[in-house]
Amino acid sequence: MVSTYISGLLLGFSLILAIGAQNAFVLKQGLLKQHVFWVCLVCALSDAVLICFGVFGFASILSQQVGLIQVMKYFGAAFLFIYGLRSFYNAYKSNSGLVASIQPTTTLAQTLMLCLSFSWLNPHVYLDTVVLLGSISAQYTDKVAFAAGAVSASFLFFFSLGFGARLLRPVFANPKAWKLLDGIIGVVMWMIALSLLR
């Protein structure tokens, strides 16, 4: 049981560590200290639901819904393109560092809607959590321990990223660092959007 849990944990970490739209959003919210707990919780719970879908047999159902995946692909690409454009605009217009950005610019509801969009509109998330983790879990007899390990990885990662981001706040007091982050986020969003359309 313990070895199966650790396998799920390590595989979960390996899939989630790559920088993506969701991770960039959590990092930015952590730097701004805006609704960090709720953002981390929504991301981790979303991953947990998708992981459980995959591990407990929903991968085969999802693989049959080709039309739904295509629709999500285009919605996801459009969403990421618009958010990336917004990041480029912020990088171009902003002349202030993190200190000027401390006041919340979005309500909790708006932030959670963005968070849910990053979590559910990206087909890559389904491929990683539902299809890949679901297919790998088939080789383990204790699926509950495997799923628990993968879910633990999501909770540990998102909460560490969200609340650990504050350690970088002195760096992002510099306007150039904040511009650079917005620019990098814009590039990441557009790269993921383009990969969805290929």
Rank of each mutant, 00 (worst) to 15 (best):
M1I: 04
S3A: 12
T4G: 01
T4F: 04
Y5I: 01
I6E: 11
I6Y: 10
I6R: 03
S7D: 14
G8T: 06
L11C: 02
F13H: 04
S14Y: 11
S14F: 09
L15E: 09
I19M: 15
Q22W: 12
N23K: 07
V26Y: 12
L27D: 11
K33C: 01
V39K: 02
C43Q: 09
A44N: 05
S46H: 09
I51G: 11
I51D: 15
C52F: 13
S60C: 07
S60N: 14
I61R: 12
L62K: 06
S63P: 09
Q64F: 14
G67C: 14
V71L: 15
F75R: 01
F79R: 00
L80A: 04
F81S: 09
F81W: 13
G84V: 11
Y89R: 06
Y92Q: 07
K93W: 05
N95I: 05
N95G: 13
G97E: 09
L98G: 11
S101Q: 15
Q103G: 03
T106P: 00
T106K: 09
Q110T: 07
T111L: 04
T111A: 07
M113F: 10
M113S: 06
M113P: 00
C115R: 01
H124E: 09
D128F: 12
V130N: 10
V131K: 02
V131P: 00
V131R: 01
V131M: 11
L133S: 02
G134H: 05
Q139I: 08
Y140P: 06
Y140W: 14
K143I: 05
K143E: 09
V144L: 13
A145K: 00
A145T: 00
A145W: 09
F146M: 00
A150T: 02
S152R: 03
F155Y: 10
F157W: 15
F158P: 03
F158G: 02
F159Y: 10
L161Y: 08
G162S: 03
A165S: 15
A165G: 10
R166K: 08
L167G: 02
V171G: 02
A173V: 10
K176V: 07
W178D: 01
L180Y: 12
G186M: 13
V188T: 08
V188N: 04
W190D: 03
S195D: 14
R198Q: 13
R198T: 12
